[in-house]
Design a protein around this nucleic acid. Structure first.
Lengths: 220, 220
DNA sequence: TGAAGTGCTCCCCTCTTGA
DNA sequence: TCAAGAGGGGAGCACTTCA
């Protein structure tokens, strides 16, 4: 088994190999393991193309045992399913959590707006729904899959997929991209304003990190 | 030994375990293994938040043995380094490729514009520079690392990193985000226009994929 | 010095399982 | 039915290696 064992993103959640009865009884309550995998993941240098919200990542991990909202009945239903599983099996036996109507609704609404969540959005949504980030992540994954299946069965065109899922994205974003002479004419986002003090006036490029100026044509 | 052995993105490149002399002599020329790992990656459903260029991925992988541009001397220098290594070692012995001045320049200029490349940008840049995508990827990785080291040594403030690297991004992009009532007030990108035919007028949300309308307040 | 190697984590995808 | 498990791939990071 050379892989990485399905990742399990946290100390408690979905650790299907070394779990104990304590894990099942105490930690699988959607309350315990909210703590971020790394909390401050690598958010100084790591921006996988999204650069969304400010680092809300790690929003008070251990302090939400008092969820006094209006839909506790749903939460109770959810907890009941797990308790049922515990009573019956206690070991192994995937516990299939049943999400509440409110959770499903908000997940569905968010999914209808975005097919993919950034890590901060995921954290925010998870915290707002009292779910773990992994649960939100898996839900979106399964939801994407479901949509894909639906599309490929309903309309039996093979081009139905790309027609439907992300058609609007490029249409909306393409105005923020320009054809760059650097990079061989690849599409690049509009340059960030600070970095090119003389780029518009003279054929020079300023490397802000090294402090060097380089001419575009055979200087150096 | 677990782990995934550094991925090696293609049949020939950086496969340090099962290489043969033929690999060294024929394939390590920055020409052979340009072919995409999957070519049609998963670009129907996979948009990791960038949604940049159209699928230029897979731009004629096997047909660039005739690079007749103006900087063949640089290419010769690059090839020379490898030939040197082959003559000396022939087995093992990491070959340290020397990038040409033109390549370094364009990489550096692109890096100054973006710290991270999308897969299509990487493909485009690699093709334009006659490098493999892995080389471009690794170059950007090493470059990021170098910048990080420079920053942490030069200015000995711990906040120097996030001050410098991605400060402009949020400033530029934050106008495209809005505070959403869904998702518990998380920052969301502006909704894609097609999906909400009645969202602005009435408190209903239309699930385009299922064809259902759902009211925002306790309908259902 | 810097391209590449190693190891680890994360996310995504596909397929499968079982409550 | 659908949340979650399992396996496999890509990418990023830190750290190291060695022409």
């Amino acid at each position: 088994m050379p892989g990485n064992m399905s990742k399990e993103d946290g100390p408690g959640r979905s650790a299907s190999l070394t779990f104990t009865i304590d894990n099942i009884l105490n930690l699988k309550q959607r309350d315990g393991p909210r703590a971020q995998p790394d909390s401050g993941w690598k958010n100084e240098f790591q921006h996988r193309g999204e650069s969304a919200a400010p680092p809300t990542t790690g929003s008070s991990p251990g302090t939400h045992g008092a969820h006094g909202t209006e839909d506790e009945k749903d939460d109770k239903r959810q907890k009941h399913a797990q308790t049922h599983a515990e009573t019956k099996a206690l070991v192994k036996k995937k516990t299939r959590t049943i999400f509440s109507k409110r959770q499903i609704f908000q997940l569905e609404a968010t999914f209808d707006m975005k097919r993919y969540l950034s890590s901060s959005e995921r954290a925010c949504l998870a915290s707002s729904l009292q779910l773990t980030e992994t649960q939100v992540k898996i839900w979106f994954q399964n939801r994407r899959n479901k949509l894909k299946r639906q599309l490929s069965t309903d309309m039996e065109g093979p081009l139905a997929n790309e027609h439907f899922t992300d058609a609007g994205k490029n249409v909306q974003f393409q105005t923020f991209y320009k054809d760059s002479s650097l990079m061989g004419g690849c599409l690049l986002p509009m340059p960030f304003p600070v970095l090119y003090p003389t780029a518009n006036a003279a054929p020079y490029i300023y490397f802000s990190n090294t402090g060097k100026y380089l001419g575009l044509f055979d200087t150096d």
